[in-house]
Design a protein around this nucleic acid. Structure first.
Lengths: 112, 112
DNA sequence: ATTTCTAATCGTAAACATACGATAGATATT
DNA sequence: AATATCTATCGTATGTTTACGATTAGAAAT
């Protein structure tokens, strides 16, 4: 990003969808989510055993998923239990569905 | 990426989904796709008028969408007509559906 | 042949992402 | 109080992305 151009603004749903997609845009994070879907929840340590990555790296990925709202962490001292954030997960699902299903049949044919 | 670790390999569908999500992970590219859905197709030049971005930047975004397989370009000299790649679009749709719907009810409860 | 039009590519700067090890903080256990 | 455990955060190196302007390439029209 060369220019510190005043940022282009898009519709809220566009920004949201892009943000979610970005969070999903790494295989490790997809794998973590798939793991959570089977598992109902897990701890950081579990994932460190599953993936050949440093604990700090896993933690970083979890943070991104949490920032995107896709997962939530619950304190279970001394551990932290991560689960899918069901409400946001459903919202995300809807946003993707909207993208993939919204091809209007009334298309503006501008092309030759 | 500090380490030139021999790359972790994930299941094919995980890699594919992550790749697609990454391509969707920028608001400009989401907006381009939404535009294509209404429009049935468009030319690079059209998008340059719609978005306050340089022509080279738009072209770059189109390239990424093309690499991800989400759009295709058809030569209409001297222009190039871009459309949604319907077959891959449907595949992508399925992969996301699979992610969002696959929460197994038989969850392995490992958590306290 | 020259000009015009469209879009890709090149070169580049700045920002962001991904990985690591090391360290710090919070809570149990001893 | 001291120790052990778990996880987040810091600092850092390296690779990738995003933006730009300039240039190039291809086709059509003059």
């Amino acid at each position: 990003m060369k220019k510190t151009i005043e940022n282009i603004s898009y519709r809220k749903s566009t920004e949201e969808l892009a943000g979610l997609a970005k969070a999903l845009g790494h295989p490790t994070r997809i794998a973590i989510l798939k793991h959570l879907e089977n598992q109902s929840c897990c701890f950081t340590g579990d994932l460190v055993d599953v993936f050949p990555l440093a604990q700090s790296t896993i933690s970083q990925h979890l943070k991104e998923l949490k920032n995107a709202g896709l997962i939530q962490g619950e304190l279970k001292p001394p551990k932290i239990k991560y689960c899918i954030h069901q409400e946001n997960w459903n919202k995300a699902k809807l946003l993707f569905e909207e993208l993939f299903n919204s091809q209007s049949s009334i298309k503006i044919e501008k092309c030759g």
